[in-house]
Design a protein around this nucleic acid. Structure first.
Length: 298
DNA sequence: AGTAGCACCTGATTGC
DNA sequence: TGCAATCAGGTGCTAC
């Protein structure tokens, strides 16, 4: 469920609570929440006793830089992952709590819970690896490296170091529809199903338009639209329809009130009044206005 | 090489 | 009321 604005809200919350703290204890409550590590015990051994130096994000991928920066505690929220911060005496773990970390800072202790109903999310201990374009890392990162599992992920739409001309050329290559291309995290990361539909609506591009048929100008306007909509969503604390997405303090964002297309199939287009359409494209539910977003327009 | 399809899960909602 | 089908914000692997 979480896309770039939601993951960035989580990153900001983590940064405000865990930077400079030390990982004292690790309780894995569901083994499969640790994917790459050889075992839950190996994960715990890798991260225990280490200090958290930074909280970094690229697209929807999030990681805590440990000690010297050669190791990361990486996390992906999948469809339903959350982090929740509790004080020295945390409540009993939530039913979907997959891991509980105990952290210490200046003699005080607190808990960090990883909660994930659908279990598509994960935690891992990973080496940091250099990437060809790792000039400045992702948002929040001063480091020239990313966790191994993020090496194939493109810079995200809000990253100042995004190579605009390069990604627009990559977008327009191949045979896929533009909706599928927007969701390709190896080109521009961070755009998920909600913000893909919203950006296409803003830029007046039909989701099934062959990406190769977009003009450079239209592709550029679409990239700008992804940045605008995700920037505004971030300012509103992200999008949330229910208790499945909350920040580290358990609070929901408000951007769902500002969605123009996503989830509004059958409702009037906020721009022209025409009934919005809904269909499945590339296995994902897709929403658009058949009048504002004409196939082949622009 | 690029792309489509499916697998991975749990839970809420909808329809019969 | 019960039960099955459908849907949900993501990613990675496999087979074309």
């Amino acid at each position: 469920m979480p896309e770039l604005p939601e993951v960035e809200s989580v990153r900001l919350g983590l940064a405000s609570h865990v930077l400079g703290s030390r990982i004292e204890a690790v309780e894995i409550r569901r083994d499969s929440c640790v994917r790459r590590a050889a075992s839950p015990e190996a994960f715990a051994a890798d991260v225990s006793g280490r200090t958290i130096d930074a909280a970094v994000r690229r697209g929807k991928f999030l990681w805590l830089v440990l000690d010297g920066g050669e190791l990361a505690l990486s996390a992906h929220l999948g469809m339903s992952g959350q982090f929740r911060v509790h004080g020295a005496e945390p409540p009993p773990p939530h039913r979907h709590c997959r891991a509980r970390l105990t952290l210490s800072v200046r003699g005080g202790f607190f808990s960090l819970d990883f909660i994930d109903q659908r279990t598509f999310g994960y935690l891992d201990a990973e080496p940091m690896v250099a990437t060809p374009d790792a000039v400045a890392g992702g948002l929040g990162s001063p480091l020239p490296a990313v966790p191994a599992s993020v090496a194939h992920i493109g810079r995200d739409a809000l990253d100042p170091a995004l190579r605009r001309a390069t990604v627009l050329a990559q977008w327009r290559r191949g045979t896929r529809g533009i909706k599928q291309v927007l969701l390709d995290q190896t080109l521009v990361s961070g755009i998920g199903n909600i913000y893909a539909d919203e950006a296409l609506w803003r830029a007046r591009v039909h989701p099934a338009t062959p990406a190769s048929g977009l003009s450079g100008r239209a592709a550029g306007a679409l990239l700008d639209a992804t940045r605008e909509v995700m920037g505004q969503a971030l300012a509103a604390g992200g999008t949330s329809f229910d208790a499945l997405y909350v920040n580290v303090n358990g609070e929901s964002g408000y951007f769902d009130r500002e969605l123009n297309a996503y989830g509004r199939g059958g409702e009037p287009c906020p721009r022209c009044g025409r009934r919005l359409e809904r269909a499945v494209m590339g296995g994902r539910s897709t929403h658009w206005c058949p009048r504002c977003q004409r196939a082949g327009a622009r």
